[in-house]
């Protein structure tokens, strides 16, 4: 098992390097001279020369990459063209906000989906199964950015229960978990965000639990006279590692894909940061945010795999 864990850990390194290569290449994908995309429009000749030197545009591409990588590893992701602040600073502040709603959303989705999926698996073909299956299909089919707008129309515009957008009355950008005045701004984004994981996890719970219930050893348990509840507990225990792995991936997708929802709700997370960076063509900010999010996703994948090894003894021999 430790060998596997170590293997998995070592394997994350080339992946992370590959991710950094793609992020580095993004600047060259951008139309026009890469230098142009890195400098403010009102830059003077000296500024341009300084930036060229700084980024080493006079050197071969490979050297540029390693220079860039070296700076990135020491936490220097460049400077935002708009705010002139270090990119890392902006990204980490925004990331805390994204992480907050993503964590709540994933927990909420898990609680609902796990119950729904288990119920469905236990009642295959009955009405409750149909309802659960429909909910999960809608969950994965609905455009969540549109869903967000609909929720705003209903709960913010018509019912006036909740604020429509933003993070706080005064335009604050700091999330407070314990204060309802702060928390209520998160309700609609969280619900919207939970839709996709809700659909995906309901589906995988249903199939995992149903799969276990159909196996021979469950028949043996039944024959031994175990009650239905005990059998269900057994099945759920067996399905849990697999479902938790799905959950972990979903958390990664939520964090990486928060841009649409954060744009709808103007929630000041990494997604909104990217959205702004795209609108203003702030390439250093865009590149830095993407690198940060992609590496986070790699890390989440790694953690999920390692946890799964711990929980599921069968994995260790793979």
């Amino acid at each position: 098992m430790w060998i596997y864990a170590l293997h998995r850990l070592l394997y994350a390194i080339p992946i992370a390097l590959g991710v950094s290569v793609i992020c580095f290449a993004l600047v060259y994908l951008a139309p026009g001279d890469p230098v142009q995309s890195l400098i403010p429009a009102d830059a003077t000749e000296e500024d341009i020369a300084a930036i060229k030197r700084l980024y080493g545009f006079d050197k071969p591409l490979v050297f540029q990459y390693f220079d860039w990588l070296g700076r990135a590893l020491t936490g220097d992701l460049g400077t935002s063209l708009q705010t002139n602040r270090p990119v890392l600073e902006d990204v980490t502040r925004a990331f805390a906000n994204t992480l907050a709603i993503a964590l709540i959303a994933v927990t909420l989705a898990f609680a609902v989906a796990f119950t729904l999926g288990t119920l469905a698996a236990y009642n295959v073909g009955r009405p409750i199964d149909r309802i659960a299956t429909s909910i999960s299909t809608v969950g994965v089919s609905v455009p969540n950015y549109w869903m967000g707008i609909v929720l705003v129309i209903v709960f913010a515009v018509n019912l006036r229960w909740l604020p429509a957008t933003g993070m706080g009355a005064t335009g604050s950008e700091n999330f407070d978990w314990l204060d309802w005045d702060s928390l209520k701004y998160a309700v609609l984004p969280v619900v919207t965000m939970a839709m996709i994981p809700l659909g995906v996890v309901t589906r995988s719970t249903r199939s995992a639990v149903a799969d276990i219930l159909s196996q021979d050893f469950v028949q043996v348990l039944r024959a031994k006279g175990l009650s239905n509840t005990r059998i269900l507990v057994h099945a759920v225990k067996n399905a849990l590692p697999q479902i938790l792995a799905v959950m972990g991936l979903q958390l990664g997708y939520l964090i990486g894909g928060s841009i649409l929802i954060e744009t709808v709700f103007t929630w000041p997370g990494t997604g909104l940061l990217m959205s702004k960076a795209i609108l203003t063509r702030d390439i250093p900010l865009l590149q830095g945010t993407i690198l940060f999010l992609a590496l986070t996703f790699v890390l989440i994948n790694l953690i999920v795999d390692l946890l799964q090894t711990l929980v599921d003894p069968r994995m260790s021999r793979a």
Partner: peptide, 22 residues
């Protein structure tokens, strides 16, 4: 190579490419 692309959440990769391409 596929694993590296797989290491991006799909929305992020789509936005990253489309966003930098303009």
């Amino acid at each position: 190579v596929m694993d590296v692309f797989y290491a991006f959440p799909s929305v992020l990769l789509a936005v990253a490419i489309s966003g930098t391409l303009g």
